[in-house]
Design a protein around this nucleic acid. Structure first.
Lengths: 217, 217
DNA sequence: AGACTCTCGTTACCGCAAGTAACACATGCA
DNA sequence: TGCATGTGTTACTTGCGGTAACGAGAGTCT
């Protein structure tokens, strides 16, 4: 039975290869979390106890490795978010719980978060060039300015200043992400998007009714 | 009048240097807009008709150059946003006009936008490693998933699908930016931030009264 | 005039990281 | 014994960021 033997062997090898891959990913994880995303392939290979070419055979190039790494964390995060989003509760409660889940996740493992979202700023000194040092400042500046405007013009009662700041950054982020998506896909006209976002800010989400079948989002 | 002569000369030199700096920045601008943010210092120097060390004398390092480059565009964008935000009109109208301004800007010059916000993805082939290819996918995936949930559970009437997608990406962006800011400054507890964002989504911005003095934001 | 110095510019180099080619050892199969 | 295949290595190339060292021109001081 050569074929069976051969298939068995193939299967063994494949599973061994996947096992190996997992090990490599865990080593890479350790290094990236320690040295920041600027970690070199040499360092990762050393941590795994092997040398560079093996990494390249498994992941193609550095982008492949990082993508695999990111996918793991991303999938985990998305799963927990989905759970919060699907829990049986009122809509507002679910929104709060989802926000809570996300914030708790980034709070619990800020290094992972920084890797996923700010893949530049290495921890020590530097490491070449901090690509990505610009977007954050721009968003921050916009958020701060908007917060000032809100705090100065809208009456939010006690604790209004912090509310204004959270809103400033939140609204800017909303604009940024929606704009980014819209620019890539062009699913509608600019005016339509503006209306959609303004409607969102104007509480249309709270006012909308539940869809037939099951509790509303 | 040595001193006067000397000051004149100094002034001349300084202004000449600034002039030069502007020229270099414009050359860098051209290259970056053509080759993407992965543009090499050699390429930029060549475009400006000089060689690398001069760039380094002017901007210190690559980060300095990019920061200077980013500052120009950032300042311009912020100025127009401020104008829209300060225009005399009702609050909702101003919000719409600000959103419109932002979206129009990124629509008009997507390359500049990509440089400011997605400082990795070079246009041709690649250029080393695309740091930052992960954050976008994660945000996109979250946005799409949220959009699905919204569309499937909330009754938004006609055109609800696109509305849901815009909201999905917008809400995710809000969460992301607010979380990022909060993680950096820790200005309040997690629960407070959750409440603030949920309140925002629940239309508290629309309901809030204007502050004393002038038309509300 | 000639030495000083200051800025602008160059060439040639270093260090380092990504990615690759070529070779070496084991192990199962004919 | 020969050979194919997966696993690992060393040693290399290429390209980039960054720097040191040197050269040329123009104004300045004695």
């Amino acid at each position: 039975m050569e074929t069976t033997q051969r298939t068995d062997q193939r299967a063994e090898q494949r599973s061994a290869a996947e096992q190996r891959r997992r090990e490599l990913l865990e080593a890479a994880d350790r290094v990236v979390l320690r040295d920041g995303p600027g970690a070199s392939m040499n360092a990762i290979a050393a941590e795994a106890g092997i040398t560079k070419p093996i990494l390249y055979r498994h992941f193609g190039d550095k982008g492949g490795l990082y993508a695999a790494l990111a996918k793991r964390h991303t999938d985990a995060l998305l799963a927990s978010l989905r759970a919060a989003l699907d829990a049986p509760a009122q809509r507002r409660r679910r929104v709060e719980s989802t926000l809570e889940t996300y914030l708790a996740a980034i709070e619990a493992r800020p290094q992972v978060y920084r890797f996923l979202m700010h893949p530049a700023e290495g921890s020590p000194a530097d490491s070449g060039f901090d690509v990505g040092r610009h977007s954050a400042p721009l968003l921050r500046r916009m958020g701060e300015e908007l917060a000032e405007v809100i705090e100065e013009r809208v009456d939010l009662g006690p604790g209004g200043q912090q509310l204004a700041r959270a809103w400033g950054h939140g609204i800017v982020g909303m604009m940024h992400a929606a704009g980014d998506w819209w620019l890539g896909e062009r699913p509608c006209s600019r005016t339509e998007l503006v209306r959609a976002l303004a409607d969102l800010l104007w509480g249309r989400l709270a006012d909308a009714g539940d869809r037939a079948g099951g509790p509303g989002f």
